[in-house]
Design a protein around this nucleic acid. Sequence first.
DNA 1: ATAATATATGCGTAATAGCGCATATGTGCA
DNA 2: TGCACATATGCGCTATTACGCATATATTAT
Lengths: 131, 131
Amino acid sequence: MTEQAEAFRALADDTRLRILNLLLNTGSELCCCELTDSLEEPQYNVSKHLKILRQAGLIEGGQEGRWVYYSVPKKPDAFRKGLLDSVRSLPETRRLKKDAKNLDRRLSLRHNGKCTLGVLHGQPSGDKNAA
Amino acid sequence: MTEQAEAFRALADDTRLRILNLLLNTGSELCCCELTDSLEEPQYNVSKHLKILRQAGLIEGGQEGRWVYYSVPKKPDAFRKGLLDSVRSLPETRRLKKDAKNLDRRLSLRHNGKCTLGVLHGQPSGDKNAA
DNA sequence: ATAATATATGCGTAATAGCGCATATGTGCA
DNA sequence: TGCACATATGCGCTATTACGCATATATTAT
């Protein structure tokens, strides 16, 4: 598979589109646990999806202490810039709105603009512990 | 999977990208056999890929007699238009150039701007009959 | 009608993807 | 040195995908 087809494949997944949606709609860099809580997905899944996106060159990740902050590339090549623009134009579904709302709440817990917590919600498989 | 992720998935395949590349770079509509010969892939595969692209809303197909002509949608929605633009910006690999060359040759066999032939090459699995 | 032909599709199989779970890795702090 | 914690990864499983092959469908020509 060519590099370009791989990039498309990285986008062919709802969870990964949700991750990118959050990264694109916030100026900030987001760490794994913030994404995990926002998406209400298990941490190991979020981590795996982040890896796929990073390998496709669609996000970048930088470690800061125990945390790894992910963000959209500052200078993507033309092809990936086009792809990211396509993701930016995704229709705002209920799910994406909820993700954004979760993220807002989660970001308000930062201190000095940095995450100081881990995953808060119950690592839901079916949301047993959420309520 | 959302409709948008499905569209990305449809693009996550080299053969399908090659098909779109040909459709985007020719003003003309192309029939299945012309694409088959240009790509040097088996007819049944091309047909299957065309189906996936059509279901994703990335191409349209219209029957004319025994032939089915495929083309890029005239009025795609904003999201798909962005995707098609991304495909348009694919780097010109050797493979894509060869496809285009094959297509040129194949198009020169049209009569009155319409295809009058079926698949010409040896339905290669490994190009046994090609030489 | 029958044959010829352009395209589509069902089936079997091998490869791949995503999830859940458990656990490893690596960093900071006591 | 050892513990706590954020993140990453290996494994087993199931579901999906792509391919090759054979054949079905549909349209034209004889």
